[in-house]
Amino acid sequence: PKDEAKKKVKEAIKRGDEETAKRIAKKYNLDWDDAKREADEER
């Protein structure tokens, strides 16, 4: 599900692992900028 994928993307971003985050986002066709902004807001 997309929500689960987005959570994984945000967790990867918070760990500083943007490569993984981008790969997950691409795989699930998520909006990378959107997920990154959300992760930054939660930090």
Score class of each variant (00 low, 15 high):
D17R: 02
E19P: 04
T20Y: 11
T20K: 06
R43Y: 13
K8S: 08
A12R: 01
R15G: 05
W32E: 02
I24L: 14
E11H: 04
E11G: 02
E42T: 08
K7G: 05
E18L: 15
K27T: 07
A21E: 00
K26W: 02
K10L: 15
K2S: 12
G16E: 02
R43W: 13
E18F: 15
D33K: 05
V9S: 01
Y28M: 05
D17H: 05
A5E: 04
G16A: 03
I24S: 01
L30T: 03
K14S: 09
A12W: 04
A39Q: 05
A35W: 03
K2A: 13
E41F: 10
A21P: 00
A25N: 01
E18I: 15
K6M: 15
E41I: 11
T20L: 14
Y28P: 15
E11W: 00
D40Y: 11
E42L: 07
N29F: 07
E41S: 11
L30M: 06
K2L: 15
P1E: 15
P1F: 12
K27L: 14
E19T: 09
G16I: 01
K6P: 02
L30Y: 05
V9K: 00
E19V: 09
W32Q: 01
I24A: 00
K8P: 01
Y28E: 15
I13R: 01
R23H: 08
W32M: 05
K8L: 14
I13M: 09
E38I: 05
I13F: 04
D34G: 05
T20W: 09
E4K: 08
E18T: 11
R23S: 10
A35E: 09
A25L: 02
A5F: 09
A39N: 04
D40K: 07
A12Y: 10
K10E: 05
P1S: 15
K14Q: 13
E38D: 10
E19I: 10
G16L: 03
A21N: 00
E11L: 04
T20Q: 10
D17G: 00
L30R: 00
K7S: 09
P1A: 14
P1N: 14
I24D: 02
K22A: 05
K7N: 11
K7C: 14
A21K: 01
L30F: 05
A25D: 02
D17N: 04
T20G: 10
D34A: 13
G16Q: 02
K14N: 11
Y28C: 15
K14E: 11
E38P: 03
A35R: 01
W32A: 01
R43K: 12
E4Y: 11
A35T: 12
V9L: 14
A5W: 14
L30H: 02
K8G: 04
A25C: 14
W32H: 00
K8C: 15
K10D: 04
D33E: 14
D40A: 10
A35M: 15
K8V: 08
D17Y: 04
K22H: 06
K22S: 04
A35H: 03
K27C: 15
D17L: 05
E41L: 13
K22D: 01
R23F: 03
K27A: 12
E38C: 12
I24Q: 01
K27D: 15
K8Q: 13
D31I: 04
D40E: 13
A35F: 13
K26E: 15
N29Q: 09
I13A: 01
E4T: 09
D3I: 12
K10M: 14
N29L: 05
D34R: 05
E11V: 03
A12G: 01
K27N: 07
E18Q: 07
E38Q: 07
L30G: 03
K6Q: 07
K22C: 13
E4W: 14
E18W: 15
A12H: 06
P1D: 14
D40W: 11
K22Y: 02
R15V: 06
K6Y: 12
Y28D: 15
K27F: 11
E18R: 04
K36V: 13
A39V: 13
K6G: 04
D3C: 13
E41T: 09
L30S: 02
K14H: 14
K7V: 10
E19R: 09
Y28S: 15
D3R: 09
E38S: 07
K22T: 02
K6H: 08
D3M: 11
N29C: 15
R43V: 13
K8F: 07
K22R: 14
K14M: 14
K36H: 07
K26F: 04
Y28K: 15
E38H: 04
T20V: 09
A21H: 00
K7E: 11
E4F: 11
E4Q: 11
